[in-house]
Every structure is written in C-alpha cells, then in structure tokens.
Amino acid sequence: MGKNHLGEFEEIVLLTVAILHGEAYGVAIIDEMESRLNRSVSIGSLQTVLRRLEDKGYLSSEFGEATSVRGGKRKRFFSVTTAGKKVLREAKEQRMNLWNAIPEIALTD
C-alpha cells in the first residue's frame, strides 16, 4: 500500500468521479454519492477530499463554460488521471486478493 494509500472516502470520491466521467463537478458528485450510497455528503468534506486528491495527482480539473445558472459561476469538472486510475485498480486488486484469501467457511453464517 505504502504512501499511495487511499482512504475510504477518498476511494469513493475517486470512483464517483470515474462514474460521472466528464460530468463530475461538485454538486453532481454529491448527488451521485447520495443517491448511490445513501449517505449525506457536505460540500466541505467533499471539496477537501477533491483538492487533496488533486494534490496527490489522482484527479485533474478544468473549468467549464460560464452559464447563467448558479450565480454565473463556472463549474469545475474533475477527471481521474492515469495515476488515479492506477491507484483505483490497485485498490481493487488488493480487495480482490483479500476476498480470495478468505476461507469459504468464514463467510458462511
């Protein structure tokens, strides 16, 4: 895992950005997460994680066109970078490895 460790929330955010592919901006990400995961997310916590992931190089962002809605403010669209894809894949593989290592018996109730 090392320094490329992803936190649980970070991983979910990264995955959601990937899901929304090209359409991932603040409110859309929140809506997607809230509808899919049934958990409420505040702008504060989301934005913090988004910026952190951008710092780590897993996300990149660019401004969209200004529109007349949302007070005329531009949207910032996030997309997953190559490094981000790689870290997501690694995370998935690690999970799978762990899943595979579980003896059959342990999961039966």
């Binding site: 603040g26 809605v69 949302r70």
Partner: peptide, 16 residues
Amino acid sequence: EYAEDIEGDLVERFEM
C-alpha cells in the same frame, strides 16, 4: 483559486 467553483456549487445546491 477555489472560490469560484465552490461558490457555484453552493449556489446550485441552494437553488435546488
């Protein structure tokens, strides 16, 4: 550097 898009998000959510 964050202000614009986050404000947009805030306003969008508010309007919704």
